[in-house]
């Protein structure tokens, strides 16, 4: 019985946090970005989140937004905890998150498995025209998690998620 309640609470928390957008890339939620690592049942229940980059300024905003969303849903006693290990990886961005990034104009990162299969980093796919004929302009972009690329077909510049 209690396991069922714990499961229902965890599902509810995921549903609530699934509506919390990333402050920098508001088309995806913090759950899709893979920074909500776990919901641990117990008294109190604990939501474990993990930062993307050590110095990402969005981390503070994310902590506040997660806290506020839980409070608004009446879950004031649920604890929010930050854990660093294992370190966040772009592999944790969900499939729905990847699709939304692409539609928003950001080339999603390759997964580690894809990179291994190819043995090196592949060029990004242009989110505008879908070609793989693209080139990196800058290894660093508008936020710590992105690099700057351009399309050699349609000539549009675009952001790409760095693969880490």
């Amino acid at each position: 019985m209690s396991a069922t309640i714990a499961e229902r609470l965890a599902a509810r928390i995921y549903e609530i946090l699934g509506a919390v957008p990333d402050p920098e890339i508001p088309v995806i939620s913090v759950v899709e970005l893979g920074i909500v690592r776990a919901v641990r049942a117990g008294v109190p229940a604990v939501v474990v989140i993990t930062p993307t980059y050590s110095g990402c300024p969005a981390t503070v905003a994310i902590n506040k937004a997660v806290r506020a969303a839980l409070d608004d849903a009446g879950l004031r006693d649920v604890v929010v905890k930050t854990e660093l290990s294992p370190a966040w990886t772009t592999d944790w961005i969900s499939d729905s998150g990847r699709a939304k990034l692409l539609a928003y104009g950001i080339a999603p990162p390759e997964t580690t498995a894809e990179r291994r299969a190819r043995r090196d980093a592949a060029p990004a796919i242009c989110p505008q025209c879908g070609t793989g004929r693209t080139a990196e302009i800058s290894q660093f972009g508008s936020t710590p998690c992105k690099a700057l690329w351009r399309c050699l077909e349609c000539a549009e510049p675009f952001d790409r998620f760095k693969c880490i």
Binding site: Y53, G55, C56, L84, S138, Q139, F140, S142, P144, L148
Partner: peptide, 20 residues
């Protein structure tokens, strides 16, 4: 501009690490 972004982003990562 790209190098401005690069150097300051590296700085940002380092300051984040310093905080931890």
């Amino acid at each position: 501009l790209e190098l401005d972004l690069a150097l300051t982003n590296i700085g940002l990562d380092l300051i984040g690490q310093a905080q931890l």
